Simulated assay, not measured.
Amino acid sequence: MSLTIKHISKKYAEKTILNDISLTIPKGKITSFIGPNGAGKSTLLAIISRLLQADSGEVRLDDTPISQIPNSEIAKRLSILKQSNHLDLRLTVEDLVAFGRFPYSKGRLTEIDRNYIERSLDYMDLQKMRHVFINELSGGQRQRAYIAMTLAQDTDYILLDEPLNNLDMKHSVQIMQVLRKLCDELGKTVVIVIHDINFASCYSDYIVALKNGCLVRQGEVGQIMQTAALQQIYGMQIPIHTIDENRIAVFFKN
């Protein structure tokens, strides 16, 4: 399977959000979208997932324009977790995770569906909270529940818009470890929008950098986690240190 973005552009009024973006998402890898606020990262992810329509260009999945794939089929191949999720319904964690199986079950859960639900609850360490209502959870717990729902959907492509929002250090690491495991053990392809470049460095295979709606850098971690590359992306000098074979950006010092 392949996911290819070709000449994607998007404007709101007269403001250019994305300008002629072309790239191919590596299969079975974690690709991180990085860049300053307003770079167009979330907009690009929304276009890839078909939540938003581009003004020009196309996204192709297995060489088929994604716009031509039926909704029922795309939901089995590509899942998206948006940056903000708001449900007014009174659902338990288990109910929410089960919703991820809807493309398959249509609301009638089978034993196979239940196995995926259990595995997703296990992955996100939510078994003890399975009967707790979503609106009773902390922000971090709620985020983990939404990610578990996305995992239960069992798609080849998993798109996550800032999945570490509202999470403490422990659960941020846990989520990145889970995403790494999904790639390494199950062959999933994961695309994330992420602000913490050190998490991107330690867990990603490939990094795509956007700035002012333009694609300014893309490549393997070692190609992007360099002072010159980060200077181009963020406009500041960021020294790089190697710790346990990980390239760490020291951006909190002058």
Rank of each mutant, 00 (worst) to 15 (best):
S2Q: 12
H7T: 06
K11M: 09
K11I: 03
K11C: 08
Y12T: 01
T16V: 14
I17A: 15
L18Q: 08
I21T: 14
S22N: 07
L23A: 15
I25H: 03
K29V: 01
K29L: 00
T31H: 14
I34N: 06
G35N: 00
G35T: 05
N37T: 09
K41W: 11
L45N: 02
A46G: 13
S49Q: 06
L52E: 13
D55W: 05
E58I: 01
R60P: 03
L61V: 01
D62T: 02
D63E: 11
T64A: 13
I66D: 03
I69G: 01
S72I: 08
R77K: 15
R77A: 10
L78H: 05
I80R: 03
Q83G: 04
H86Y: 13
D88C: 00
L89P: 07
R90N: 14
F99D: 04
G100T: 06
G100V: 02
F102V: 09
F102E: 09
P103R: 06
Y104G: 07
S105Y: 10
R108M: 10
R108T: 07
R108Q: 10
L109M: 02
I112Y: 07
I112M: 06
R114D: 05
N115Q: 15
N115E: 15
L121C: 09
L121S: 13
D122T: 12
M124I: 05
D125G: 04
L126E: 10
Q127V: 00
V132P: 08
F133Y: 14
F133L: 07
I134C: 06
I134R: 00
N135F: 11
E136Y: 09
G140S: 00
R142N: 10
R144P: 02
R144I: 04
Y146K: 01
M149V: 05
T150R: 13
Q153N: 12
D154M: 08
N166Q: 08
K170Y: 09
V173F: 15
I175H: 08
I175V: 15
M176N: 09
Q177E: 15
Q177M: 09
L182I: 04
L182R: 12
C183F: 02
D184Q: 13
L186E: 15
L186N: 10
K188Q: 10
V190I: 15
V193G: 02
I194P: 10
I197C: 10
C202V: 10
C202N: 11
D205P: 00
Y206F: 11
L210V: 11
G213K: 02
C214F: 08
V216A: 02
G219Q: 11
G222T: 12
M225F: 12
M225D: 13
Q226F: 08
Q226H: 13
T227V: 07
A229L: 07
Q232C: 07
Y234D: 13
G235Q: 12
M236Q: 14
Q237E: 15
Q237N: 14
I238E: 08
I243Q: 03
E245L: 12
E245Q: 15
I248A: 00
I248D: 02
K253C: 04
K253D: 01
